[in-house]
Design a protein around this nucleic acid. Sequence first.
DNA 1: GATAATAATTAACGTTTTGTTAAATAAAAA
DNA 2: TTTTTATTTAACAAAACGTTAATTATTATC
Lengths: 260, 260
Amino acid sequence: MSNQEALDQYDVKKYRTPDGYTSDIAVFTIVSEKNADYKPSKMTLKLMLIKRAKQNNEKQVNIEADKWALPGGFVQDDETAFEAAGRELFEETGVSKIHLKHFGIYDKPGRDPRGWIISNAHYAIVSSQQLAQRKADDDAAEVALFSMEKVYNLNLAFDHRQIIKDAFAVIKQDLLLTTVAKNFLPEQFTYSELQSVLLTVTDDSAISSDASFARKIKSLPFIEVVEGKKTQRTSKIPTQLYRFVHMDADIIKPIYTARY
Amino acid sequence: MSNQEALDQYDVKKYRTPDGYTSDIAVFTIVSEKNADYKPSKMTLKLMLIKRAKQNNEKQVNIEADKWALPGGFVQDDETAFEAAGRELFEETGVSKIHLKHFGIYDKPGRDPRGWIISNAHYAIVSSQQLAQRKADDDAAEVALFSMEKVYNLNLAFDHRQIIKDAFAVIKQDLLLTTVAKNFLPEQFTYSELQSVLLTVTDDSAISSDASFARKIKSLPFIEVVEGKKTQRTSKIPTQLYRFVHMDADIIKPIYTARY
DNA sequence: GATAATAATTAACGTTTTGTTAAATAAAAA
DNA sequence: TTTTTATTTAACAAAACGTTAATTATTATC
């Protein structure tokens, strides 16, 4: 018998199936408070949340209305959860070509009172300029940025508290173990700009010490000097610019060979 | 209006919903070829696959029959995909309390000819003894272990080729960046046993050099000496045993502070 | 019973990297 | 002209590394 015959016999309704398949996105941005000219700015990692409207598009009372939530929505049957996340993020913020990563599935029975609804969690990295732009375009829904400490005081929808906690853990790990930090930086950056990004998630002394980090950055195989290019963004004296080099494989440095 | 009213108005059938929600498991084991007494054994990382039966439980022609596939099945509406993976693994191998981790979602439209079927990918670590046990109990379905190289020559079901590729990448990364290696080892182990496990996924010279690795293992904060305990499993001269210490937080060593 | 063989472990040592403190630099601000 | 400041280099002792060789404790062999 052929595969086709097997297919014809297959009864798709044999098992109960989910009532919904959704994607949510933890949108991260780094806001930098520029204190003065010729100074590196203090950076803070923030998460964008939206306040759920009282009514949905059909003018009905919205589920989990008035609570803060991750942006997201239902996955269509012609796309993956990852593609849906990209689409929804574009609808919400107007930005595409941003860093987006799937990091987990949230499917505990009862997590959504509407039924058996599965959520795919993603995180995205968007520049604060891009977010500011969106805010100006559309102020229908309330949108705000929260630091890691402030976010847990909010009244959060569904199981978003847990998703957010996991999202912060994942982005912290990725910032330190991969080169995603590049998405928070301009294409060319100074050692202190990269340092500031990393210090939003770590207090490692090898990173926080200027002398150590400025010396170390020159020997990292995934970062290169931009020959002869300097900037005065962060200091009076012209400062060397660096850029990430394209790597086709991830860098994996075993915990068994690190220094402690 | 209350949340309850919102719930009553909510129409669960507004969006098309998936036709199936499944969990698949990449079951890894390490087989060690013991060449002789008083010698460390050569270890190889292998993946367990099952050959899909010609007929399903209802005596119908099975979908993707005769192809090799990851064990798995449908998630029930009272459990998470992760719980389903644990249940299915127990049904399949008879083992519980093994290391199990969700690592991805596979939901590309068309990936399964039966309809819109979403697969949750997990990997599990099972000792080869536990697998050998199962083989003896039930030889109805064909089960076999394949090395990373051999597996890609097989006729694989659905999109399992991609899932397997990703599973190998994830376990490689986890073996080097976390302490999951402990699940491949007895509670107490020699430096060469740990070394052999790591060498199944890396050829890092700091790990493959005996002198370096034997010196280094003593300074790792997540491994401790078992005072006064030695074994002759791997050498004529009694060899020091080590164990992993329980850590409540993951070790994260930034790529920005590593040596290159 | 002496000798060879072997995996684990330590020693030895020159090289590299680190942590730290201090000095040098170059431009702006006072 | 002097002060200020972020960056960068220098200097140097301490730590860690890569490597080769020696030591150890046992089993296997003769």
